Simulated scan of single mutants.
Amino acid sequence: MPLLTPQAVSLAGLTPTYSAAAASTTVPCGERVFLHVKNTAASPVTVTLTSTARVRGQLAADLAVTVPATTGEKLIGPIPSELFADPTSGNCAVGYSSTTSVTVACLRI
């Protein structure tokens, strides 16, 4: 899975660079890390962050966010380690129900 590198938001401003969404990617976890997802497809897209947290031995639910069709945009985050960090890589796995006409940027404030 490709890793999306966070782009730092600064006082000077940031013009984010967006990449085409891949079927699955990873992003670093952090209280200041967000995903900005844009969808220009004719159908909504579901973005799923895979949970790795356990409560009383049971895996916590994944986070599923729907990005509306045509001109939909969603900022998703922060992405806390205690909910989403893979035990091996420390990153969060992100999946998309469709990647057609979907772009994404990883941002850090």
Rank of each mutant, 00 (worst) to 15 (best):
residue 1 M to W: 09
residue 4 L to R: 11
residue 5 T to L: 15
residue 6 P to H: 13
residue 9 V to C: 10
residue 9 V to E: 10
residue 9 V to A: 15
residue 11 L to E: 14
residue 11 L to G: 15
residue 11 L to T: 05
residue 12 A to R: 12
residue 13 G to I: 11
residue 13 G to T: 07
residue 15 T to Y: 07
residue 16 P to I: 08
residue 16 P to C: 09
residue 19 S to A: 09
residue 19 S to D: 13
residue 20 A to S: 10
residue 20 A to N: 06
residue 21 A to F: 01
residue 21 A to Q: 00
residue 22 A to D: 04
residue 22 A to R: 11
residue 24 S to T: 09
residue 24 S to M: 05
residue 28 P to F: 03
residue 31 E to W: 03
residue 31 E to V: 09
residue 31 E to P: 01
residue 32 R to P: 03
residue 32 R to T: 14
residue 33 V to C: 04
residue 35 L to M: 06
residue 37 V to Y: 01
residue 38 K to Q: 02
residue 40 T to Q: 05
residue 40 T to G: 01
residue 41 A to Y: 12
residue 41 A to K: 01
residue 42 A to K: 06
residue 45 V to Y: 00
residue 47 V to N: 05
residue 50 T to Q: 11
residue 51 S to H: 04
residue 51 S to P: 02
residue 52 T to L: 07
residue 53 A to D: 08
residue 54 R to M: 15
residue 54 R to Q: 15
residue 54 R to V: 08
residue 54 R to C: 03
residue 56 R to L: 13
residue 57 G to K: 11
residue 58 Q to H: 08
residue 58 Q to P: 00
residue 59 L to K: 14
residue 63 L to T: 14
residue 65 V to F: 05
residue 65 V to W: 02
residue 66 T to W: 03
residue 67 V to I: 06
residue 68 P to N: 09
residue 68 P to Y: 02
residue 69 A to K: 04
residue 70 T to L: 03
residue 70 T to R: 07
residue 71 T to M: 10
residue 71 T to Q: 02
residue 76 I to R: 06
residue 77 G to M: 08
residue 77 G to A: 08
residue 81 S to E: 15
residue 85 A to C: 12
residue 86 D to N: 15
residue 88 T to I: 15
residue 88 T to K: 14
residue 89 S to W: 03
residue 91 N to Q: 12
residue 91 N to G: 04
residue 92 C to S: 08
residue 93 A to M: 05
residue 96 Y to I: 00
residue 97 S to M: 05
residue 97 S to Q: 04
residue 99 T to A: 02
residue 100 T to Q: 12
residue 100 T to S: 14
residue 102 V to A: 02
residue 103 T to K: 08
residue 104 V to E: 12
residue 109 I to W: 14
